[in-house]
Structure formats: structure tokens, C-alpha cells
Amino acid sequence: SSQSQGISSSSTSTMPNSSQSSHSSSGTLSSLETVSTQELYSIPEDQEPEDQEPEEPTPAPWARLWALQDGFANLECVNDNYWFGRDKSCEYCFDEPLLKRTDKYRTYSKKHFRIFREVGPKNSYIAYIEDHSGNGTFVNTELVGKGKRRPLNNNSEIALSLSRNKVFVFFDLTVDDQSVYPKALRDEYIMSKTLGSGACGEVKLAFERKTCKKVAIKIISKRKFAIGSAREADPALNVETEIEILKKLNHPCIIKIKNFFDAEDYYIVLELMEGGELFDKVVGNKRLKEATCKLYFYQMLLAVQYLHENGIIHRDLKPENVLLSSQEEDCLIKITDFGHSKILGETSLMRTLCGTPTYLAPEVLVSVGTAGYNRAVDCWSLGVILFICLSGYPPFSEHRTQVSLKDQITSGKYNFIPEVWAEVSEKALDLVKKLLVVDPKARFTTEEALRHPWLQDEDMKRKFQDLLSEENESTALPQVLAQPSTSRKRPREGEAEGAETTKRPAVCAAVL
């Protein structure tokens, strides 16, 4: 046999249950609850290399294929790409003598399909299967379609040439079993990697079954959420508030809700932002270029202005709740996480202390139980975000031990490091100062900020419009641009040419 590394010779191994799959997660993409704000000051410096380099560890398999027929071997997927077919160049070659004697062998292509993985959001991997055969590759009886790919989820059954000719079961060793999710959700989405997690739940990458488009699904544990919100009269209202707010909003710089499922837990389906959180971008770069800050901040102002015009105060604006559309420097941003939002009543007064301390406005800290506050709290938070983006460190921090965090904020005395700000323009610093004003009545509004000289930049605004146009074009394009080929190089076993392929839609398939 010419099988590559990772293939075992026996096809009769006992199949494990899916609970053996491991679970991976990374930083929070968007969480309903406010958790302790991640610290920006503690960015690790590059460490000196050791005298002796450690040995390379043996790579762990990321997936496993269990053979369902004699003549096929099990495969431990270690590499990122595997070709399957009769050709000797394939990493998994159909060359077992037992297999060659079967009637089905002649229906398999020289290069029938490939399984591979690509880097997705949060640097996690996504597994795909890609059909290159004349007679078809099927996943859970659905045709992939020649020249098309679809994501592979845990426990997928792979069939060759005929939908009933099941050859492998695919085990993704990095994700959960699909069966743990409600059927209504599974009918519409293929669940994938964990993108982030918080005290009350997690955010998962998923794929729409009909279109193969990526989405983010925010899962909120009702049990954990009820415990964490025990002081509230009705904890469920917080989730329902977020859903109702998101459904009503329609702005290019605000995250869109696509679906909602109320089962044992809450499942909020949101558009996916491939670039992750602004927080991670700031930490990764230490600070952002001023031109990049301007492009992002302009969009934040437009989003918050839209919220305020619609009578909504976000109340928890922070870099973790600003998501980026891509890994590119120039990209769209979207505001997310409306769990603490407040729809303005007639009095415009709110007395609930919520939000993240580092970003809270002075009037929030001094008015607990005594007075109210209004939309100006969001403008203060925007000032803190702009400060961080321009400088790479927070204006107020618990680690300045000589003054408490509350006193720093209520006095408006931010930590100004001259040598850092020497590289920032006077106009940018002036806008920061106009937003970090203790008196909410004297603080800049979103309208005033948008009129500030720093943002009178036609090149930046043109760039934003171009990015918007690109997004609109990409969302308007159909996901499947061509029909699967019906040509046949070899006959199917026991049926006429093209008899099955043309009847089945290529579900969740995307043209390369």
C-alpha cells in the first residue's frame, strides 16, 4: 500500500463515540455579560531565545476518518491537505487489492476528492471536503458537486459515486458533537469551532446549510445566566432586550441578528466578523496607526449616533465590543453586545450600574441610586476607546495605585505619557480631550465629534464608502454560481449515467 503517514491498516477498528472529540476555545468574540476587562498594560515583551531549542513535538491529529468498508483504511489527519483517489500521487490511494476487485472500484476517479483545513476566524481551523469526481462525492447523502466544497462537521458520513455507498465517517477532533444542539438549529446550521467564551456562554462559528455562508452563533446558558443575574427581577429580559434591539436596528456599522432560537439555552445567530475584536488588534499591534484609528472611530461614531437617534444607549462600549470585518488594516467595524443597552424612556434617566469599570463615565460612578444619566455615557466610553487606539494603553487603570480607579475617572485625570502622545496629531488629542470631559453637559456629542476637524478627511470617508460598496456587492452575490457537472467518465454501479447527480441539489457548496 502507498498510504501516507497516519493511515492504519485495519478497517475493522472499533469506532469511538463522539464524546472523545476535544474542545477548543479562544478569547471572547462577544459576550452578553460584562466580565473583568482584559488588561492592556500587560503586553508581554519578546522573550530571549533559549540556548537549546526544544524538540519539535509530534503533531496531534486534528481529524480521524473511520473506514466503513473492507479495502479502505482508517486515517489520522495530521497534515493540512489529503487527496483521495486511484492515482498513485494521492496521499490516500485507493490501491488495496481487496478494493480493486470490487465492482465499485471502476466508478472512483483518479482524484476523487480531497479533505483539507484552512485558517478561519480567531486563527481556528475549518475542515472542508472538495469534490473532484465525475460520479460524485456525497456528505450525509447530499451531493457536494464537482469543483465545489463544503465544510465537514463531526460525524459526517462520506459516500463515493452513490449516496448509499458510504466509505468513511469523519471525526473532527477539535469540535463538539452536533447532537448536543437543538434540532431546529441543526436543521438550518452546521455548528463548528468555538470563537470565544464568557461567564454565561460562548460564541460558535457555524455555516448556513442552504448557502454555506459563515455566521456566529452566540449561545447563552439559561442556567448560568439565571445564577449570574439572580438580582434582576427577570434575567430573561436581558436576552430578550438584546434580541428586540438587534432586530430593529439596520446600520452597516451595527451587528445584524439573523436568527434566534429559544431552547434549553438561547441561541442568537449573528453575522460573522472575520477580523475578531478591536481589543485583540490593539494588543497585537501595541497601538494602531492614526489613519486606521480615524477610519475605525468614524464608523463607531456613525453607529452610536444611529443608536442615540433611535433612543438607544449602549452602556457597555469597549474594544471587546467592536468587531472587525476582516484581518486587513482597512476594514469595516461593527458594534455588538447589546445586553446592557437601554431604550430611552421619557425621563432619559437610568440608575442601574452596569458596564465595565474602566470605560464607565464619571456620572455613572457618582450617581448610583441618587440620580440618572443619559446618552453622554456612550460618548465618554468612545473617548476611552479612542485614547486606547491612539496610545496603546488605557487612560484609567486600577494599577495606578496612588489613585483609585473611581477617583481617576470622576476627576477626569487620565494617565498622559508625553513621549507616547508625541507621535499623535494635535487634532486627534483634542478630540480625545473633548470626549473625556467629566461634566456630561459639556462633553462632545456624537454629532459634535463628527464635525471635529480631525474627522474632516475626505480620503478616509471615501475609503469607508468603498468598503461599504464591497460589502454590499459580496452579500448580494449568490453563493453557488454554477451547477454541478453531469458529465460521466465512468458508469455508476447499477444505474444510468447522471441518474442521481442531477436530482440532488449541491447543498452548502461554494464554487472555488
Rank of each mutant, 00 (worst) to 15 (best):
E242L: 05
I243A: 04
I243H: 03
I243M: 12
I243K: 09
E244W: 04
L246F: 04
L246M: 14
L246Q: 00
L246H: 05
K247E: 12
K247Q: 05
K248Q: 07
K248Y: 05
K248R: 13
L249E: 07
N250H: 14
N250P: 12
N250R: 08
P252W: 05
C253H: 10
I254Q: 04
I254H: 05
I254N: 04
I255P: 05
I255W: 03
K256D: 07
N259Q: 11
N259E: 09
F260G: 12
F261N: 11
D262C: 14
A263T: 06
A263H: 04
D265P: 15
Y266W: 06
Y266N: 14
Y266R: 15
I268W: 01
V269C: 07
L270Q: 04
L272T: 11
M273Y: 03
E274W: 11
E274H: 09
E274D: 10
G275E: 07
G276I: 04
G276K: 06
E277Y: 06
E277T: 00
F279R: 03
D280C: 12
K281Y: 13
V283L: 13
G284E: 14
G284I: 05
N285G: 09
N285E: 06
K286I: 09
K286A: 08
R287T: 14
L288S: 06
K289G: 06
K289Q: 12
K289M: 07
C293V: 06
C293H: 06
K294T: 10
F297A: 09
F297I: 15
Y298T: 13
Y298R: 10
Y298C: 13
Y298H: 11
Y298P: 03
Q299E: 13
Q299G: 05
Q299T: 05
M300S: 08
A303Q: 01
A303E: 00
V304W: 03
V304F: 08
Q305H: 13
Q305V: 05
Y306A: 08
L307W: 01
H308A: 13
H308Y: 13
H308N: 11
N310F: 05
N310I: 15
N310P: 03
G311N: 02
G311A: 11
I313H: 01
I313G: 00
H314C: 00
R315L: 01
R315H: 03
D316N: 01
L317W: 08
K318W: 01
P319V: 13
P319T: 14
E320S: 00
L324Q: 05
S325D: 03
S325L: 09
S326R: 02
S326E: 07
S326P: 13
E328P: 02
E328F: 09
E329V: 09
C331A: 00
C331W: 07
C331R: 11
I333N: 00
I333C: 00
I333P: 07
K334Y: 05
I335E: 03
D337Y: 04
G339Q: 00
S341I: 05
S341F: 04
G345C: 11
G345F: 03
E346Q: 12
M350L: 14
M350G: 12
M350R: 08
M350K: 09
M350N: 06
R351N: 07
T352H: 00
T352Q: 00
T356K: 02
T356G: 01
P357T: 13
T358Q: 08
T358R: 15
T358I: 09
Y359W: 03
Y359A: 01
L360T: 03
A361I: 01
A361W: 01
P362Y: 00
P362Q: 00
E363P: 03
V364M: 13
L365N: 04
V366R: 06
V366F: 09
V366N: 04
V368N: 09
G369K: 13
G369N: 14
A371W: 04
G372H: 03
G372F: 14
Y373Q: 02
Y373I: 02
N374G: 13
A376Q: 07
A376M: 06
V377P: 00
V377M: 11
D378L: 00
D378N: 01
D378C: 08
C379M: 10
C379R: 06
C379Y: 12
W380H: 06
W380Y: 15
S381A: 09
L382A: 04
G383T: 03
L386G: 11
C389F: 14
P395T: 03
P395A: 11
F396V: 12
S397C: 15
Q402H: 13
V403T: 12
K406I: 07
K406E: 07
D407N: 12
D407E: 12
Q408Y: 08
Q408V: 00
G412E: 08
Y414L: 15
N415D: 11
F416S: 04
F416D: 14
I417W: 02
E419L: 07
V420I: 13
W421P: 09
A422L: 15
A422T: 05
V424Y: 14
S425D: 07
K427R: 07
K427V: 02
L429W: 06
D430N: 13
V432A: 05
K433N: 08
L435M: 13
V437C: 12
T446N: 07
T446G: 05
A449M: 15
A449F: 03
R451E: 09
R451M: 15
H452V: 10
Q456L: 15
Q456D: 15
D457Y: 05
E458K: 14
D459K: 02
D459L: 00
K461R: 14
K463E: 03
K463H: 00
K463I: 14
D466W: 12
L467S: 03
S469V: 14
E471P: 05
E471R: 07
N472D: 10
S474N: 15
T475G: 13
A476Y: 15
A476S: 02
Q479V: 05
T486C: 07
T486E: 12
S487C: 05
K489G: 14
P491T: 08
E493R: 00
E493Q: 11
E493D: 09
A496R: 12
T502R: 07
T502K: 03
K503P: 10
K503D: 07
P505Y: 08
P505V: 09
P505L: 12
V507P: 00
C508R: 09
C508P: 12
A510K: 03
L512S: 13
